[in-house]
Computed example of a mutant assay.
Amino acid sequence: MNATTYIKERFAKEDDVLTAVRQGIKDRDMPSISVAPETGNLLSLLVGISGAKTVLEVGALGGYSGICLARALPADGRLVSLELKQEYADFAHENLKQAGYGDVVEYRVGEALDHLAALEQEERRFDFFFIDADKANYANYLEWAIKLANKGAVITADNVLWGGRVHDETNQEESTTYLRAFNDLVAADPRLEAMMVTTGDGLIVARVKDSIS
């Protein structure tokens, strides 16, 4: 038994709700790129520990991560989820309704960068961010997250190990180079306290320092 299997068996067993979401994604021929069960469990834990009431998710897919985020919100909590495709947002919302969180989430469909600018215009602020979308814009999503962050907000981003490709110096695929640059950016940003966790496909966990505006 390897370490990943050991952890999954004890700390990250999927319940029927999440198993159904994963199967539904497969049945609809959607990309099978939901977060790993252990990553979903960690996201729930982080939202709860941070005491977040407002969460912004960039990339909804079928709602797997959305359920994990919503589960840890307090009764008055709110999740805003940005998704490029209407069909994905609709399916994600259907799944959150089935899980009992349909009234907690607000979906905004279209280019995430446009919606992020709109949220700034609306003076919306968030306590927790989860980035899991197109890798080319990870750096842009990070900057927007910092702009939209309440003091002390937590910013997370998935796939930062990219199946081990980011630390393989011979791999120069475009998506790999974007993620490699993103990781370096987070590590060096003076506005953040950050760590990379090897859970799942790698998760960046960063806290926005209280000293920034």
Rank of each mutant, 00 (worst) to 15 (best):
S34P: 07
G202D: 05
N95K: 03
G24R: 09
A139V: 14
G24V: 10
V17L: 14
T5H: 09
E14P: 08
L79G: 07
I155Q: 00
T176G: 11
V109W: 00
L56F: 01
F130V: 11
N171S: 14
D114N: 13
A188R: 12
M1N: 08
G100M: 11
E173W: 12
L116R: 02
E122R: 12
L161N: 10
L46F: 11
I146C: 14
V21R: 03
E120C: 05
S34T: 08
A194F: 04
Q98R: 12
L119H: 03
D210W: 04
V160K: 00
A3T: 15
G48R: 14
A60F: 01
D134W: 05
A181E: 13
N41S: 08
A187W: 01
L82K: 12
A194R: 07
F128D: 04
R207G: 01
E123G: 02
A12F: 08
G59M: 08
A149F: 00
G102H: 14
A52F: 08
K97P: 02
P190S: 10
E143P: 05
I146Y: 10
V197M: 05
L79Y: 06
C68V: 00
M1W: 09
E174I: 10
F126S: 03
K8S: 11
L119M: 13
G66Q: 06
A194D: 10
A153N: 01
I49K: 02
G48N: 12
A157H: 03
T5I: 11
N183A: 07
V104N: 03
M196I: 15
R28N: 14
A72T: 04
A112F: 03
A99H: 02
V47D: 00
G110K: 07
R180W: 06
D158I: 01
V109N: 01
A60K: 02
G110N: 04
C68P: 06
H93K: 13
Q121D: 15
F128I: 13
Y107A: 10
E83C: 06
G59E: 02
T4H: 15
S32V: 14
P74H: 15
K97A: 09
E83H: 07
R207L: 01
A60D: 02
A157T: 06
E122C: 09
A92K: 01
L73E: 09
R22V: 09
A52K: 10
A139N: 14
V21S: 02
A52V: 03
S211H: 08
L96P: 01
A118R: 12
E87T: 14
K151P: 13
S34R: 10
L45K: 03
H167V: 11
Y178E: 12
L96N: 02
E9R: 08
T5A: 14
A99K: 01
A149E: 01
N2G: 08
G202Q: 12
A92V: 07
L46G: 00
G202V: 09
L69I: 11
H93L: 14
N183L: 01
N171H: 13
N137T: 02
N159I: 08
I146E: 13
R78F: 04
L116D: 00
Q98S: 11
E9W: 01
A187H: 05
K26Q: 13
L116Q: 04
